[in-house]
């Protein structure tokens, strides 16, 4: 874990203090993408970005009412889309890793501590299913339609 502490946003250098949250998110996204294992989750950063996204969405709604120039609206929309893409890609990437290495991660306290509470729940729910039907390659696939099967909306042959 220690090798990643260089990028610890809790102790930003003078230059980093001036960077935007998007820039920081881009950095963790890039690191996450290049690293084979799941890296520490920066909850404060993600929630800050979420807040900014929500704020901009509200602003865009106001723009629609107050008749702001289409050009300006479309530029802000692009900014919003870019940020959304980055955040979604980052979260999805982590979920993919967690899904792939569920067993490995759930056995290591160090790795578990890197997950967000939601991700930990996701890892746990995956683990349960794996335990239920060991050696079955289709367990995780089954899990996604489990609700439908139990609701009687799909028949398994």
């Amino acid at each position: 874990m220690s090798s990643w502490d260089d990028d610890d946003p809790a102790a930003p250098s003078a230059a980093e203090a001036a960077t935007t949250d998007v820039e920081l998110l881009k950095r963790v996204w890039r690191n996450e993408k290049a690293a084979p294992e799941v890296l520490g989750f920066d909850s404060p950063l993600v929630s800050r970005v979420r807040e900014q996204i929500q704020l901009l969405e509200e602003t865009l709604d106001d723009f629609a009412d107050s008749g702001v120039d289409d050009l300006v609206v479309s530029l802000y929309q692009m900014d919003l889309d870019r940020t959304l893409f980055l955040l979604r890609s980052y979260l999805r990437l982590r979920l993919q890793k967690i899904e792939k290495y569920t067993m490995h991660i759930s056995r290591s306290d160090d790795l578990l501590s890197r997950l967000s509470p939601q991700e930990r729940r996701f890892a746990k729910s995956g683990e349960e299913v794996v335990d239920l039907v060991a050696d079955d390659l289709y367990v995780l696939r089954y899990k996604s339609i489990k609700g439908l099967v139990e609701g009687g909306r799909i028949d398994l042959i």
Binding site: T20, D21, V22, Q52, I53, D69, D79
Partner: peptide, 10 residues
């Protein structure tokens, strides 16, 4: 002529 854009990315 366009006002400043205060965006998430800057």
């Amino acid at each position: 002529r366009m006002d400043a854009l205060n965006m998430i990315c800057g």
